[in-house]
Design a binder for these strands. Structure first.
Lengths: 189, 189
DNA sequence: AAAATGACTAAATGAACAAATCGGTCAATA
DNA sequence: TATTGACCGATTTGTTCATTTAGTCATTTT
């Protein structure tokens, strides 16, 4: 990949993380990347596409981290938990996701809202894949994989994000226990 | 209770339902209630308190409807489902809740946001009560009642509201099945 | 010739100001 | 005593206009 392209992505990522999408100007990105503004438009057709590409590679990164956390020798239950934990740890610790989620909450920038929705959808699709695998292997009883993945994801948001808004946040240990107690018990054979 | 007070509450409820909280003026309420504006302030110290009182009685109404749906001869599982179903049917069908939830989404009026948060908290508290009852009776295994009620509520929102945003909405029948399969299995003895 | 650039444009944003509206009060009224 | 609506300060809304910004393209650099 072109060196300039890399510089642009790096600069934009830094600026989006620091100031958010709306507050980042293309002039700013050009200056940080040490390129002319026109150059950006030879690689990306708009500011929005620049964001989309950055989030796309972030999605790949998250999936990769989740994949690494999975150990084929462990059970489906163990692995789905490990994957979800990685996904949500990423969300909570990466500057870019933190800033973008904040921007959706506070300003509701449509481009950012859309891209974060896609992130959620892709995470659910990822989990669905793991569920389908486990179903094929007969590790779990038959179920609607999309619906199950959706519920797992929503439950993780509830435990990781929503609960903490009005109570003492839960430890990862506790979240794992609860997830197992409430959701996975229903799937076991 | 004073006749005028009733008229005011009735008028405000109608106007909030029709136009939302923000778009309702106190002059409007006074006119609809056939009272002078000053009269409103002999019963309610502010517009916000008027909303709060209306929502408070709505909360009572919802709890009552849920109570009516409960049948002591049935199991905890049956009853908690019936109660939750009533709570969410109310949310989906009552003009006032529809309008206020819409207003929070679209405008984010702080007073409305606060009052709807309280509604959620009170519904969770209600469910917690039922869980504590069932635990005392030994109908379900021991668990953190607040956390369990919170998860039940979040799961019902996920199934009733969130799923429908990107998929074909689920029937009440299907929701009941899923709730049983995923959440209640973990609580049974 | 191909790649890179930054001055340029049209559209969007927001600062600043005026006008209208609204929540809440209280002296007058019934 | 209970009720009222004219009134007030604060907030919101509408408007104008200068600035900023995303995106283009003629020119320059390599």
């Amino acid at each position: 990949m072109s060196e300039k392209r890399k510089q642009i992505i790096e600069a934009a990522t830094k600026s989006f993380s620091l100031f958010g999408y709306k507050a980042t100007t293309m002039d700013q990105v050009a200056k940080m990347a040490n390129v002319g503004k026109g150059t950006i438009y030879t690689f990306f057709k708009s500011k929005e596409e620049l964001l989309e590409e950055i989030v796309s590679s972030m999605i790949c990164e998250i999936k990769h981290e989740a994949d690494v956390a999975i150990d084929q020798r462990l059970s489906f239950k163990e692995n789905v938990q490990r994957a979800l934990q990685r996904i949500f740890t990423f969300r909570k610790e990466h500057e870019l996701t933190i800033k973008l989620l904040q921007e959706v909450r506070d300003i509701g920038t449509p481009a950012v809202r859309d891209v974060m929705k896609r992130l959620d959808r892709e995470m659910i699709a990822y989990i669905r894949g793991k569920i389908e695998e486990a179903m094929t292997k007969g590790e779990i009883r038959s179920c609607d994989p999309e619906l199950t993945a959706f519920l797992m994801f929503k439950m993780y948001i509830a435990l990781n994000v929503d609960w903490g808004k009005e109570h003492e946040p839960l430890s990862q240990q506790k979240i794992a226990e609860l997830f197992d107690l409430y959701l996975l018990k229903g799937l076991s054979r």
